[in-house]
Amino acid sequence: MTTEPKIIGFLCNWCSYRGADGAGMARLKYPPNIKIIRVPCSGRVSPELVLRTFREGADGVMVLGCHIGDCHYSTGNHRTAKRMPLLKKLLEYTGIDSERLYINWVSAAEGEKFASVIRDFTEKISTLPPFRETMK
């Protein structure tokens, strides 16, 4: 089954967003399904924000931040590292495929990694049914 999944990516301004820039600058190809939202820090992405993104009809949500230890605000991404694994668990316990939420660390220099992460995630989400339909 091939569907065009809608994916929202929350990208940290200081690392992952620059990583996305780097991918573009290097002319790397990645699927256009992702809509990028720039946030000041991956720690800004609250569970509420992720849940609302799903409710509005996203099929997958990505949260990309700086590697642990590289945070511009020193411990902002520790919040991400603490709560996102728990949010994944909660989605699982509620019967929602926890694969739909993806967390990774992409630095400003990792354009290559950014493109491959997006490719893999889009591929994975394409195999799942649209989120809205599973919620009917």
Partner: peptide, 21 residues
């Protein structure tokens, strides 16, 4: 975060998921 004036709540239930979190 939580829609008002609607019952039953839309799925996924934001109220219960946010509260669980």
């Amino acid at each position: 975060w939580v829609e008002t004036g609607r019952l039953p709540m839309a799925n996924p239930s934001m109220y219960h998921l946010i509260r669980a979190m």
